[in-house]
Amino acid sequence: MIDVVLFLCVLAGATWLVTDGTTKLGYNWQWYRVPRYIFTSENGRFTAGPLLEGLKVTLEITAASFFFAFTIGLITALCRLSSSVLARMVSRGYLELVRNTPLLVQLFFIYFVLSPIFDMSRFFSAVLALSLFEGAYASEIFRAGIVSIPKGQWEASYSLGLSGWDSYRWIVLPQAVRRVLPPLTSQAVSLVKDSALVSTIAVYDLTMRGQEIIAETYLAFELWFTIAAIYLTITVALSSAVAVIEKRMKVAA
């Protein structure tokens, strides 16, 4: 009961803040001009607007980076836990370098310095930067998951004659991945959000398209709200999808 009252108070407060804020702002809201930038439909024919085009690019970049970031993350984690001194040194160096410099700087470095040398496209530069950055964080998550598996699992596996690789592949990693699914999801959500930075190297993603439209129309408030809502939709959908998978796995185990 007290919760309901509190909730209503908070809701009332928020509403008052928003209405008061918008009146004082004296901003001329023109929401009706926004939909055409998302999509248009003439005579039943659906045409994607610039925002949806941008969303497509954002999703492409995110999906590609997902794949590479998790691959890099897993390999780095395995290297850090390996008995080879070289593998440990290289992986540690990569991790510290990437974790301790800003993503924006890495993106500019890859785009302005590396991409002319190796003749990489903007899209590829963006994916490379995001993969390397998120991969470093993913590797720490994987490593935590792997070391959290009790020693007895390794011993049982070894005592049955499984090799180190087979033990990883069939015994330890399947359990570790289940354990780190929640933090891995947070990382995936971060990836979606961080992908907005690629607009700085003129990749036509959702954020870049938004900026472009705002420059033409001055609909700054409406468009930023819209863009935020689109990002929110993707990340919430992602989180819920993983929640479902997590539940299934729990039932199975």
């Binding site: 009790p150 007895g152 049982a156 005592s159 049955l160 069939w170 015994i171 185990a253």
Partner: peptide, 26 residues
């Protein structure tokens, strides 16, 4: 073969897969 005090069965696999695993892999 070794049997441990704390069993150390593989929790993510069914009983059958626990027993099958090494036969198939090794």
């Amino acid at each position: 073969g070794m049997v441990f005090q704390s069993f150390n069965l593989f929790p993510h696999l069914t009983v059958l897969d626990n027993i099958n695993m090494a036969q198939i892999l090794v």
